[in-house]
């Protein structure tokens, strides 16, 4: 009984998003390449800009509820004796994520597995949601920028562990002329992470739309002599877009999720100043930390 409720929790938000999209999509001729639909716009004049609730936000919420349902479904009714497939899948996911985090970030960050897995799952399912015809939230630069800013704050938190003054001095190395470049390099990390994810997903969506419109035009000109309703049907659009979707939607989406999580791990673990941090800890009579 609980299982069916959890499966409904996985599927219903996506269906609700499809219904919302059908209700809000304006009538248009041909294939339009447009951004996210805006469901609601605040009437009050907020500064500096108007407040929107757009398709990307609503789809992200739906994906979050679905992933929560999936997690509850996988971990529902765990036992130590009788193994079922569901429990084995859940254990496989946990083991893989812990191993990935430990291999890439070191032993100190071993408890960061859930965070990294959450980022990866949200990113992957947000990209895969376009398989049911919805707008991918990751094709909106605001969403990926939000995640990148979150990661940027984490990177900065761990870089400041060695003391703010040490970090500030480090910007002027090896010679003081490099200071502006080092500063730009600090801010380039989140920008490049956000643009990489957004650009890959958006380019896939744009190419899919272009190929769809091209095949519609081709079938209208080639198969226009067919009788009755067949003349209006874009018959050539059957098949080929699905093959391309395997690369542009499935492979590219999952790949970018993995790369986003990988760069998160490498940037957080690579920026920790261990020697300075341990020097500070010893000064404050705390035990020194190691990363292995």
């Amino acid at each position: 009984m609980v299982d069916y409720a959890l499966i409904a929790m996985m599927i219903l938000p996506i269906l609700a998003c499809v219904v919302l999209k059908v209700l809000f999509t304006p009538q248009s001729e041909g294939v339009a390449i447009a951004g996210a639909l805006v469901f609601w716009k605040s009437t009050a004049e907020l500064t500096p800009t108007t407040f929107y609730i757009s398709e990307s936000q609503v789809n992200t919420w739906a994906v979050m509820i679905s992933i929560l349902g999936l997690c509850l479904y996988l971990t529902h009714g765990l036992t130590t004796k009788a193994m079922c497939k569901r429990q084995l899948v859940a254990e496989w996911i946990v083991e893989k994520s812990e191993k990935l985090v430990k291999d890439n970030m070191g032993g100190f960050f071993a408890q960061w597995g859930p965070f990294i897995t959450a980022i990866m799952a949200l990113s992957a399912f947000s990209s895969l949601i376009c398989l049911v015809g919805l707008f991918s939230p990751t094709g909106d630069v605001n969403v990926t920028f939000g995640w990148a800013i979150l990661v940027f704050f984490l990177i900065m938190y761990f870089k400041f562990r060695g003391g703010f003054w040490k970090y500030f001095i480090g910007l002027f190395k090896p010679i003081p002329v490099f200071a502006p470049m080092n500063l730009i390099g600090e801010f380039a990390t989140p920008v490049s992470m956000a643009f990489r994810h957004y650009g890959n997903i958006l380019s896939g969506a744009v190419i899919a739309a272009l190929i769809g419109s091209a095949l519609t035009g081709l079938s209208n000109s080639l198969l226009g002599w067919l009788p009755g309703v067949f003349a209006q049907m874009p018959l050539l659009r059957v098949g080929l877009p699905a093959v391309l979707s395997v690369y542009f939607d499935v492979f590219s989406g999952v790949m970018q999720a993995f790369i986003f999580a990988m760069l998160t791990m490498l940037n957080i673990a690579g920026g920790v100043p261990w020697e300075d941090w341990n020097a500070r800890r010893v000064k404050h009579n705390k035990p020194a930390l190691t990363n292995d």
């Binding site: 643009f195 990489r196 957004y198 650009g199 890959n200 790369i259």
Partner: peptide, 16 residues
């Protein structure tokens, strides 16, 4: 694949 994804960044800036 990791390196390819990072090398792709400049091309994606052009795309954007």
């Amino acid at each position: 694949i990791m390196g390819c994804a990072i090398a792709e960044t400049t091309g994606l800036y052009g795309l954007i």
